[in-house]
Amino acid sequence: MHEYSIVQALLAQVTAEARNHGATAVRRVEISIGELAGVEPDLLETAFEYFRERTICTKAELVSRRIAAAWACRVCGRERRQQSYLRCERCARPFDLVRGDEIILDKIDMEVPDV
């Protein structure tokens, strides 16, 4: 279950950003997961709840946004229909994945002491 490995990478990234900003806690972490990223958001959230203990994210909420996969022809711009072949009928060239394989840390809401 690689979601545990991904959460550990996520926590390392969030912790480093929080330190850079002098934060004392992280309240919310927003991520985007593509449909073809090979990552299950539900499993990711379960793993996050487990691994956030005793980190700066102890009280943080993980919010994941799912991004649908989209394929298009680089030549004519035609988009692929659902479940059809990955080859443009007009140009006979393979479709490119336009979006849907992202595993992205978008935003962190962190608690920073007032100066």
């Binding site: 990234q13 962190i108 962190m110 608690e111 007032d114």
Partner: peptide
């Protein structure tokens, strides 16, 4: 003076979570 107060600061990242692996 209000010292010890804190604010919620939103920080935009937009970075691949597997950036270190890559």
């Amino acid at each position: 003076c209000g010292c010890g107060d804190s604010s919620i600061v939103p920080v935009e990242i937009h970075e691949n979570i597997l950036a270190d692996n890559d």
